[in-house]
Simulated assay, not measured.
Amino acid sequence: MTIDPDPIPVTLRWAVHILRAEAVAVGLVAAWLVWSDLTATTTDLPSALLVTAFAVGAAVALWALGGALVRRRAGARAPAIVLQLMLLPIGWFMIQGGLGWLGVPLIALGLGVTGLLVSSPTNRALGFE
């Protein structure tokens, strides 16, 4: 039995779990978009395919970044932070559009995961300190 001398800190572990959960959620949205693209009666096909491709790409990126972070790849932290910070304007525009019940949690999620990714234990685990 091998014991890891330097276990993954709880902050990094939670960040990875949340990134993977986000990947699953965006993947479900992408699946719904594919179904919607296939069953729509009238559509702007190029725009529909672009939105669907963006959702699929985001899901793949979130999953891959979670995997890279669990393997302590320091280069995965910056793209993960960028994806989390993208939730801020999305949440803000949701609040402005009357969907505060969804926008506020998205902003909190983006800031929370960013906080986990820049915390001292995560920095040490990724070799930044």
Rank of each mutant, 00 (worst) to 15 (best):
G97N: 10
W101H: 01
R77D: 08
V10C: 09
M94T: 06
A25N: 05
R124M: 07
L88Q: 02
P9D: 11
S47T: 15
R72M: 08
G110H: 00
W101N: 04
A53H: 08
V51F: 05
N123S: 14
T2Q: 15
L69Q: 04
P5W: 08
L49D: 00
T122I: 09
W14S: 08
A61P: 07
V34L: 13
A68V: 06
M86Y: 11
A61S: 15
P7Q: 06
M94Y: 02
D44V: 15
A15G: 06
F128A: 09
A30D: 10
V24F: 12
G115L: 08
W35C: 14
L45Q: 01
A40H: 03
L69V: 03
L50D: 10
D6G: 05
W63G: 12
W63C: 08
W35L: 15
M1D: 09
R13A: 10
L12V: 00
S120E: 14
L69K: 01
M94S: 02
L65C: 05
A55T: 03
V70N: 02
V10Q: 15
R72Q: 08
L50P: 00
F93T: 04
A55P: 01
E129H: 14
R71D: 10
V60M: 05
V60T: 03
L49N: 00
R77A: 12
V70R: 02
I18G: 01
A64D: 10
